[in-house]
Design a protein around this nucleic acid. Sequence first.
DNA 1: TGCATTTGACCAAG
DNA 2: CTTGGTCAAATGCA
Length: 316
Amino acid sequence: MEKGSSSEQQQQGLLLAELARIQQLGKQMEAELSQHSAARSCKPLLRGMLSSVRNSILIAKASNEPDDSPPDAGSETCKFAFRDQMSKKRKTLPKWTSEVRVGSAGGGAGLADGTAEDGYNWRKYGQKDILGAKYPRGYYRCTHRMTRSCPATKQVQRSDEDPLLFHVTYHGNHTCFQRQQRQKETKYEQEEEEEEKQELLLNLQAGLRVDTEGLEFDSREQSPVSFSFGSKVEAIFSSPSTPDNCFSSRPSPSFLSPTTSNSTYFSLSPHDFEGEIKLWSPESGATNSAADSSLAGMDFMLQELEFEPDFSSFFS
DNA sequence: TGCATTTGACCAAG
DNA sequence: CTTGGTCAAATGCA
């Protein structure tokens, strides 16, 4: 990838900071919830959130310093292909793809269709038969597209040969949970921001029925900088772990209930399941088995991250 | 009744 | 013209 412009790097720095903040938010939230038994059911989701955020930071880091960090044993791991925007239709939103494999159909880890969940709230807005594809492609956008102008969308397509494998393409980052740190011009906007904070906090306390879980590889910059991110992520799971019944009381079953268990797919937490994540360049198509270890190694780079102090006031 | 989903139409890009 | 992506009215569901 080209050496990014300073603004690009600045954006990525912002991304890193924001992600780090989300991560700590989740950690603290977990600590809070652990004191109430009723909140136990939220823990798996929370773990997924934390680990996924971790992954996000990982990827962001990898793309942030591509020239400085030595390549991982010659593999394409975490070397992301940045492309110019593909079509004007897609504008300049960042794009990246992932593959999600469902380990087993049984076990109640129901994955009825392509709605493998990542913790965000998606709303389906279209479906299209794709040429040469056996299954139609589903089009989803963030539920808060209207309310918060969240530009995130995703496309989900089931693999032809392997019905348990889903190709998920993400466009744009979620901004629905982000504070608009850009200079707030008017007092109205500031008040609005405060309201959003309150809403977020309330949602968090209400048991993760939130629009804010930072899951998946929501790792691209949130600027209009025009570069795309292409990578593949394959998560393989051997254990269905806990069924989805712990979320069955949720009011939005279509997404959260049957699929929330899938949000752990990207979790690296060893407590919940056995899983692995592979990253490789989509162009090369090389499936380096070394990718796993190197990725895991990179994961450790994420341990120390400077957190913003304003977080505490957030919760007080 | 107010949501989300479905589904055919519409539109832009190649 | 073909194809992929989005829109929006119709439909379904709690």
